[in-house]
Amino acid sequence: MARLSFFGRLTDSVFPAEQMLSLPGTVRDTHELRQWLSQIWTLGDLLDDPTIRIAVNDDIVSEPHPVSDQDRIAFLPPVGGG
């Protein structure tokens, strides 16, 4: 299963902020993952936002980037600073 993490304002809409999920075979990259999550969780256009970057296995990636069922995938809104 993939380990999904959500940060910042996304945690207001996605609970829990960290969860394990089996990705279907139709989800092969980050674009397809955004679309799939938006559908199954009825998130509207929340994830359809280029300012939300995605990290795969703790590296921020250029999209679309391949994802697999063993990955740690994090959704990162713009940072707020310390």
């Binding site: 910042g8 304002r9 707020g80 600073g81």
Partner: peptide, 17 residues
Amino acid sequence: AVFWKKETTPSGDNWIE
């Protein structure tokens, strides 16, 4: 720095940038 920051006030929560 990679932080996300939210302040809670009487008028609600605000994510800070």
